[in-house]
């Protein structure tokens, strides 16, 4: 069966502004010439008709409808897929950090939208969970084209805030998601590392494929501050620290690098795909690198 594809209505997408456009641009640009869906559906179920547009394959024209109406319609199908993908986007306060680049949450929005677009394009079912210490928005996985619009709307409407305590939440979600699928986590992972890894292992125990996109700002990695700085906690109101960054840099970087290293290593040990995303890198480049690597692995 030829790979099915989802056609998104540009007019509908335009309502979601830049996020949708960026997602489409990113994915379609990437798909040109190289795309071959890694997930192939085995059952196709008619869903609806739509108007023919030049460029649509002629074999999909519903000639019977043409006979009745004297107009060309294309038959659309909802593909039953064996993949259900869950996009777990961290919307906690720490994701709102914005240095000289886009905020981590904005970056995660682009990545999530792009992945949703891509997977829906491949007829995979995509669900979305936006959370901080609790789930703020949950969209169950579906594979139709209108589902993307819902995902995009939720992504766009959500503002980051609240504390990060993801491990218990992920534990609960791992229990709730019974069918095997793909779990894509977009987070800065600023939480207790041990609990975090335990939650990820829980996903793995449930035989989910887990992709961990570790979203970080360059300032968080390099800690370039020189003057005395008051750091105000984005997650806990009123919590602030006045420090001499030059005096703290070494200690900070040591702690931070150790955290990242441990996360990467323990994710690897749990057979989780770990990708570090810096917000100063172009989204398409980061996404492209991931997809290329995944594609080559699927071969």
């Amino acid at each position: 069966m030829p790979p099915a594809s989802i056609h998104f209505d540009p007019t509908s997408l335009s309502k979601y502004g830049r996020l949708a456009m960026v997602a489409r641009q990113l994915v379609e640009g990437f798909l040109t010439g190289v795309h071959k869906s890694p997930y192939k559906g085995f059952s196709v179920e008619f869903a609806e008709h739509r108007q023919y547009y030049p460029g649509d394959e002629i074999r999909h024209i519903d000639w019977r409808a043409y006979g009745k109406t004297d107009r060309y319609f294309i038959k659309e199908y909802e593909e039953e897929t064996n993949l259900k993908a869950y996009l777990l986007v961290d919307a906690s306060g720490s994701m709102a950090y914005k240095g000289k680049t886009a905020s981590k949450f904005e970056y995660a929005q682009y990545i999530a939208a792009s992945l949703a677009y891509l997977m829906l394009h491949q007829r995979d079912a995509v669900g979305l969970a936006l959370h901080d210490t609790k789930v703020r928005q949950m969209i169950p996985p579906k594979a139709n084209s209108k589902h993307l619009l819902q995902i995009l709307r939720v992504l766009q409407e959500t503002q980051p805030g609240g504390e990060t305590s993801m491990a218990p939440l992920w534990d609960r979600m791992a229990e709730q998601i019974t069918r095997r699928g793909m779990v894509v986590i977009l987070s800065d992972c600023f939480d207790n590392l041990r609990a975090l890894i335990r939650a990820i292992q829980h996903f793995r125990h449930k035989r989910h494929e887990v992709l961990l996109f570790h979203v970080l700002a360059p300032e968080e990695i390099e800690f370039p501050f020189k003057k005395w700085t008051q750091f105000r906690n984005l997650e806990v109101a009123g919590h602030r620290l006045l420090v001499d960054p030059q005096a703290l840099r070494k200690e900070y970087r040591k702690n931070f690098d150790q955290f990242c290293k441990d996360l990467r290593e323990q994710a690897g040990q749990a057979r989780v795909d770990y990708y570090l995303l810096r917000t100063d890198e172009p989204v398409e480049k980061a996404l492209g690198l991931y997809l290329t690597a995944r594609q080559s692995r699927m071969k």
């Binding site: 720490s94 003057k227 700085t229 008051q230 806990v236 420090v243 900070y252």
Partner: peptide, 12 residues
Amino acid sequence: YDVVDWGAMQFL
């Protein structure tokens, strides 16, 4: 001093 809204407080 400068004021920065910061997420990675745990490393400070």
